[in-house]
């Protein structure tokens, strides 16, 4: 029996995979039950986009969470969460190309030319593709310092996604503003002075605890 119980680390990983796949299962369930409303294609588009944004923010929250709490295992969630963000973004894009436009290149061209929010979204996805394909340990080793530089682009992708979201809504941009503020805050928590301050606080707390 002992051999069946997973190591603690693996159990956390399993939890991340389950949490990230539940929205997809829920979406498929709703689609199968006809619960997606009068405009199901738009519903799939909007939901996959929203899940991609949530997972991206979750992935970006790992490092700051570690900075603030000192909790180490949270750092292991970064990669799977980021990859799932990419998966949902890719589904979002495929829904747009296939379900929405039926891969009709003429029609897509007509609309992309006039829809700047699509161009911005596509740019964000291009970044996520690059990050996903360099997410392996081998790529990390091969790229060395350049890996870190490349993966900082995730914040550019975050900014583009917020613009994409804000340009897609009609006038009330409180939703995009709230998500933008969250991503900006997560970025601020990564700035070296902020990080050092939190690290000192942790050391102080530990010393006082003794």
């Amino acid at each position: 029996m002992r051999r069946l119980s997973l190591p603690k680390f693996a159990r956390y990983q399993l939890l991340v995979h389950l949490a990230a796949l539940i929205p997809l299962a829920w979406l498929i369930f709703d689609a199968a039950r006809g619960n997606l409303g009068a405009n199901p294609i738009q519903a799939v588009e909007q939901r996959t986009g929203k899940y991609a944004l949530i997972l991206m923010a979750a992935s970006l929250a790992c490092t700051p969470l570690n900075t603030v709490t000192g909790w180490r295992s949270v750092l292991r969630w970064r990669r799977p969460l980021g990859l799932y963000a990419f998966v949902y973004a890719a589904l979002h894009f495929l829904t747009f190309l296939g379900l929405d436009y039926g891969f009709d290149v003429g029609l897509i061209w007509l609309d992309v030319a006039g829809k700047r929010f699509i161009l911005v979204g596509a740019a964000a996805l291009a970044i996520l593709v690059a990050l996903a394909f360099t997410s392996t340990g081998a790529a990390m080793k091969r790229m060395g310092r350049r890996w870190k530089q490349l993966h900082r682009w995730v914040y550019a992708a975050g900014g583009l996604v917020i613009i994409h979201y804000a340009w897609a809504v009609k006038a009330d941009i409180r939703g995009p503003l709230a998500w933008g503020a969250l991503i900006a805050a997560l970025l601020a928590l990564r700035l070296p002075p902020v990080r050092r301050w939190f690290a000192r606080q942790r050391v102080r707390r530990r010393l006082q605890g003794r």
Partner: peptide
């Protein structure tokens, strides 16, 4: 004439799949 942020070239009729 496009909306400044999106195209008006095509539409989805509710209940239909193709644009």
């Amino acid at each position: 004439v496009n909306h400044p942020r999106w195209s008006q070239a095509s539409e989805r009729r509710i209940g239909e799949t193709a644009r």
